[in-house]
């Protein structure tokens, strides 16, 4: 939700306050701020840096020159827009990372099922949530395997970027195969059996949590409406 809100909110101060309120404060409360910052930066940096540079130098229709490097001109408009993009990307990656750091996948599935969502949908949601850490793990393994066979990905940036290319394919194919395997394992254990099932335990959910969720959802809807109708920004 924070991620959508960051995109919906225009301008610069809005998203900054949003990141502070919806990502940094809860992260501090959950005592995961350090890990959050590291992981979020890791996720966001490649995209953030390239988006920042592209906008700084190539913002269409910009006139106010900030500085020049040879034929390349950095503009004030570009800089402003680049900052906005940067903070939005950080908000998105921050929110996504916060979710992974604070939500046990098991809790998510149980909660979804308790709310009457079909186990199938709950499973698919859970599988996609679990896929991200699995992807990161798999990417690490493949990098090690490829380096051990002479792929040079250390040293300059260009080598590092080039090193990502042979990793992407295997990681994605591998994770598809894994989800397939897990699905088969579930079928073998009667997961697709029709009829209602009993949950073994229920995740804790207080009234305050529930009110909080509804408030956030309402704020998000309001924000999108406002943004679309052009009242703000």
């Amino acid at each position: 939700m924070t991620a959508i809100a960051a995109v919906a909110l225009g301008g610069l101060p809005g998203p900054i306050i949003l990141v502070a309120a919806a990502v940094v404060l809860p992260a501090m409360a959950a005592r995961v701020l350090g890990r959050l910052v590291r992981t979020a930066l890791l996720l966001a940096l490649p995209i953030a840096i390239s988006a920042f540079l592209v906008n700084l130098f190539f913002f269409p229709g910009a006139t106010q020159v900030l500085f020049r490097i040879g034929p390349i001109v950095a503009t004030v408009e570009g800089f402003g827009f680049a900052l906005e993009i940067l903070i939005r990307i950080l908000a998105i990656s921050g929110a996504v990372t916060l979710f992974y750091l604070t939500t046990r996948p098991g809790d998510l599935t149980l909660d979804l099922e308790r709310r009457g969502i079909s186990p199938r949908v709950a499973f698919v949601t859970n599988a996609s949530v679990q896929t991200v850490p699995a992807l990161v793990e798999r990417a690490g393994q493949i990098t090690a395997a490829q380096r051990a066979r002479g792929l040079d990905t250390e040293g300059n940036i260009w080598r590092r970027v080039r090193g990502i290319v042979p990793i992407v394919g295997p990681v994605i194919l591998g994770s598809i195969a894994e989800v397939e395997e897990r699905t088969m394992a579930l079928e073998a254990r009667g997961f697709t059996r029709p009829g209602r099932r009993t949950l073994l335990w229920t995740p804790a959910d207080s009234v305050r949590q529930s009110i909080g969720r509804w408030l956030m959802l309402a704020a998000l809807v309001a924000l999108i409406v406002v943004r679309l109708t052009g009242v703000l920004g």
Binding site: A145, R147, A148, G150, T153, E154, G155, P170
Partner: peptide, 24 residues
């Protein structure tokens, strides 16, 4: 030395093949 440089001298076969194999 980088891993890649060392790999030209020392070939290591991993304990778990599934952590080593990645190609199609």
């Amino acid at each position: 030395l980088t891993i890649a440089q060392l790999a030209s001298r020392v070939g290591l076969v991993f304990q778990d093949p599934d952590r080593q194999i990645f190609a199609g």
